[in-house]
Amino acid sequence: MTSRRLPAHVVRHGDLKAFAAGHEFRVVAPSLDDHAVLLRGEFRRERLRSGLILHTADTTDLYDLETCSVQEAGLTLSLFLDGGVTIWQGDRAFQMGRTTGDHGAIEAVMISRAQRETFRRQSMRGTHVRKVNITVLPHWLEESGLDAVADHRHAHAFSRTHLAAVRWRSSPRLLSLAEQMLAPPAFAPMLRKLYCESRAIDLITEALQVVAQSDQETDTPLRPRDLQRVRAVRDFIEAHLDDAVTLAALARHAGMSVSSLQRVFRAAQGTTVVDYVRSRKLRRAREALERDGLSVNEVAFLAGYASPANFATAFKRAFGVPPRNFRARV
Rank of each mutant, 00 (worst) to 15 (best):
F319S: 10
S260A: 13
L294P: 06
V233Q: 05
A239Q: 08
F319W: 09
V258I: 13
E217F: 15
R286S: 12
S257M: 04
R324N: 09
E197M: 06
L282Y: 05
T272D: 02
I204C: 08
R225C: 10
Q269G: 00
A300N: 04
A300V: 01
R286V: 12
E290K: 07
S260H: 12
I204P: 04
R263K: 07
E290M: 15
R199H: 11
L302F: 00
Q209L: 15
H240D: 08
T313G: 09
E217S: 12
D202Y: 07
V210G: 05
S214F: 03
R266S: 11
R223M: 15
D226G: 10
E217I: 10
A267R: 14
A267Y: 08
R199M: 12
T271A: 11
P323Q: 02
V273Q: 03
A309I: 13
E217G: 02
A207P: 06
H253E: 04
L203S: 06
L203F: 05
D202I: 04
D202V: 08
A244W: 02
Q228F: 13
T218C: 14
F315A: 00
A268M: 05
V245R: 05
F236L: 10
A314S: 09
F326V: 06
G270A: 06
V299T: 01
S260C: 10
D235T: 11
C196D: 08
R252N: 05
L247K: 01
L282A: 00
Y276I: 09
R266A: 14
V230W: 06
Q269L: 02
T205R: 10
V233N: 01
L241Q: 03
V277G: 03
A267M: 13
P221V: 07
R278M: 13
T246I: 03
L302N: 03
R266T: 13
V233M: 06
A244H: 02
R252T: 02
G304E: 10
T205L: 07
T218K: 01
R199V: 11
S259D: 12
Q269V: 05
K316E: 09
L282M: 01
D243R: 15
T313P: 00
Q228L: 15
D235N: 11
R278G: 10
L241F: 11
A285C: 08
Y305E: 11
H253T: 01
Q228K: 08
R252C: 05
T218Y: 07
P308M: 03
V211F: 07
E197H: 04
D242M: 10
V245M: 07
Y305W: 15
T313Q: 12
R252V: 00
G270L: 03
K316I: 00
A207E: 02
V274D: 05
E287W: 14
V277F: 04
R266W: 10
R278L: 09
L302Q: 03
R225E: 15
R286E: 12
N325L: 11
R286Q: 13
R286L: 13
A267T: 05
R317P: 06
C196W: 02
R324D: 12
A251W: 03
D243V: 15
A268L: 05
R284N: 07
S257T: 12
N310P: 09
H240N: 15
A285P: 01
A212S: 15
S307P: 09
A314T: 00
G320H: 09
N325V: 11
I201T: 09
S295R: 14
G304C: 15
